[in-house]
Write a protein that binds this DNA or RNA. Sequence first.
DNA 1: GTGGTCTAGACCACA
DNA 2: GTGGTCTAGACCACA
Lengths: 121, 121, 121, 121
Amino acid sequence: MLIEIDFRDKRPIYEQISAKLEELILCGVIGADESLPSVRSLAVELSINPNTIQKAYDNLEQRGFCYSVAGRGRFATGVAEVMPERRREFFAEVDDLLKKAATLKVEKDELIRYVGENYAG
Amino acid sequence: MLIEIDFRDKRPIYEQISAKLEELILCGVIGADESLPSVRSLAVELSINPNTIQKAYDNLEQRGFCYSVAGRGRFATGVAEVMPERRREFFAEVDDLLKKAATLKVEKDELIRYVGENYAG
Amino acid sequence: MLIEIDFRDKRPIYEQISAKLEELILCGVIGADESLPSVRSLAVELSINPNTIQKAYDNLEQRGFCYSVAGRGRFATGVAEVMPERRREFFAEVDDLLKKAATLKVEKDELIRYVGENYAG
Amino acid sequence: MLIEIDFRDKRPIYEQISAKLEELILCGVIGADESLPSVRSLAVELSINPNTIQKAYDNLEQRGFCYSVAGRGRFATGVAEVMPERRREFFAEVDDLLKKAATLKVEKDELIRYVGENYAG
DNA sequence: GTGGTCTAGACCACA
DNA sequence: GTGGTCTAGACCACA
């Protein structure tokens, strides 16, 4: 399932897992209403306690990336539905970075040039 | 001393303090080789445990923003000296954001326009 | 049959089905002593496990919305018969909401005005 | 601390706890920035596993009723800050009830009279 | 099988 | 002491 845990990563395990699944949903690898691996199967696959997987999924669901159906499983939310909120968050991050740019005296032109040259579409 | 603790902030207290001092040094409010407040005085001023202040200073020193002289106190590093490393970190953050932009389908033009319009020099 | 399952709905499937049937009976779409679809046919129609449909019907019957005749099928109870109990439940819910109104400091006048303006007969 | 668990209640324990604390915060018994009992102390007091208390608090925090400070404890959010969202939720519940009223043929006048007579300010 | 809740107990960073 | 994370293992409702 393309998920790997990095134990040196400072982020908690559950967050690494939910972040990775978030990415897979956003980039379309997991399509709308497609089922996610079950708590138990993912726990076995990653050798992680089911409670931790559950927490990762709770996290994901709370942020709107999936929904669960009792007795059936868990399914990905459609990308279109989640995008707007994600984009809002993205630009909030850009705002933070722009503030940082100011204190570091990174000029507007320099920043724009950098973005232009390093944008990887 | 212009430092305020926000208890709602998810970052630990010691990190908030070191981040704030970092900013004061970067933007020149605290000049090169100027002395920083003592652990004790800052602890009293902020009503924070001295151990926490100590940890903030350790953090700051470890990242090169200040140096301590035994028996004399702690002093700010010159901005010129710290800048290059900070800028390197800044552009690494920009790189991260550019990756994110790709998965969120934020177009190059859109991003550059946004930066242009919201840059606050 | 006008029944649609919403997998995003947090309620279990059997409850969604019984709630929908309850509504159809209350509003008269399914009249008194009219037959309800068989477990099997509804299971096929909704692509839902027959056990789940059975559970929905058990739920419905237990709350007095239908009765089953051995070998003949299941039939809707007359609205007149069910109404009083439903209304009692309804006003119990209103009571709960009134308590909530108090703790949220929603004034009596405000609440009455709201009801008046948003009542959709 | 005025919290009692009802094991016959169908709601999970963690939800009963967070609901009760929510109420205590909303009605002002626990004031703004006042500390909530620690996970461990509440666990002992209620004879409930600390993990369950933690979950109750996570729930509460996620809904904006409190915030936690690493190493310090957990504190109530000011009522004023939480109210608007709560009121929005309240009126959404009223809307649901109004729909129900329609299917149950509870007349507008009857409902308004009922609210008027049973409002307990 | 699938998600959700809960207990018991451990360990870590932070204050 | 305080919150946060994690493992191990059990039990329940739902499908």
